[in-house]
Simulated assay, not measured.
Amino acid sequence: MVIATIFVFCSFVVGITPVTLMADVPFVSVPLSQEAILNCCYITKDKPGTPAWVFQHSNRNMIPIPVNASDLVIIHKIQKFDESCGVLTLKAVQLNDSGLYQCSLTTTGNSILSHGTYLQVYKPLEKTLNFSESTKNGILTAEGILLLLCVVLPSATLLCKSKKVHEIEKKKMKKEEENIYQGLNLDDCCTTYDQIERSQALGPYQDVCNIMEEEEEIQLEKP
């Protein structure tokens, strides 16, 4: 019973709207004062006339208003085999032309709307500085040279500093080596050297008689 009801309902809908709408382009962005072309394509067994277009401003509360043909607005129809397309051409769009555009199809006394295309009109950014190509190339060349200098000069400065630090450390080490020998008396060094040589020459054994004689020669100081 449910399947039969759905079948009857679908047959009723097809009978009311014998038009198959094709997918529209959902969004189109066009610069200010340029041309905008919008299409709505459909397939139908009937031969309807040229589709009418309606426009709804970006404010959703506004009711769609019809789009009338003029010198700047052209409405026509093209046929592609079994597919028909309504074409809306806006010669010079303005900012207030932004909004949703839908074509209205009337077949067998019924009117349906296409899915629609949203048109956005934007104002291109203006150049603050209008330079020629040769000037731009010169600026790029100067920027490249400055960038190279910013890389080379710090590196050269660090290299020179490291070289100076190395020379200072080298001089410091040389002075420390010279300071090692300062304050030494050559006569004391010679005397110490002679004592070492004499002790090595006498050897580990000494003459007891000589020691006694040396002790006799030492005279004690009287109090």
Rank of each mutant, 00 (worst) to 15 (best):
T50M: 05
P51T: 02
W53V: 00
Q56V: 08
N59Q: 14
N61P: 04
M62Y: 07
M62K: 10
M62D: 10
I63D: 13
P64A: 11
I65N: 04
I65Q: 06
P66Q: 06
N68H: 13
A69D: 01
A69E: 03
S70Q: 11
S70M: 06
D71C: 09
D71L: 10
V73H: 00
V73K: 00
I74Q: 02
I75E: 00
H76E: 11
I78G: 11
Q79R: 07
Q79T: 09
F81S: 07
D82W: 09
D82G: 08
D82A: 11
C85H: 03
L88H: 00
L88C: 02
T89Q: 14
T89R: 11
T89F: 07
L90D: 00
K91N: 15
K91M: 13
V93I: 14
V93C: 05
L95H: 02
L95Q: 07
N96S: 09
N96F: 04
D97S: 13
D97G: 10
S98W: 02
S98C: 11
L100C: 09
L100I: 09
L100E: 13
Y101I: 02
Q102V: 11
C103I: 12
C103N: 01
T106S: 14
T107M: 02
T108L: 12
N110G: 02
L113P: 03
L113N: 09
L113R: 04
S114F: 06
G116W: 00
G116Y: 00
G116H: 00
T117S: 08
Y118V: 13
L119W: 00
L119E: 01
Q120A: 04
V121T: 02
Y122A: 11
Y122Q: 07
P124D: 06
L125K: 01
L125N: 08
E126A: 13
K127D: 14
L129A: 11
L129C: 12
F131Y: 14
F131Q: 14
E133T: 15
S134M: 12
T135G: 08
K136E: 15
N137L: 12
N137K: 15
G138E: 12
I139R: 03
I139G: 05
L140D: 09
L140Q: 15
T141I: 14
A142H: 02
A142M: 05
E143A: 13
G144Q: 15
G144Y: 03
I145C: 05
L146A: 15
L146D: 03
L147D: 06
L148A: 15
L149N: 04
L149T: 04
V151K: 05
V151Y: 05
V152M: 08
V152A: 11
V152C: 10
V152S: 12
L153C: 06
S155H: 05
A156E: 12
A156K: 05
A156T: 09
L159G: 12
C160V: 12
S162Q: 15
S162W: 02
K163R: 07
K163I: 08
V165F: 03
H166E: 15
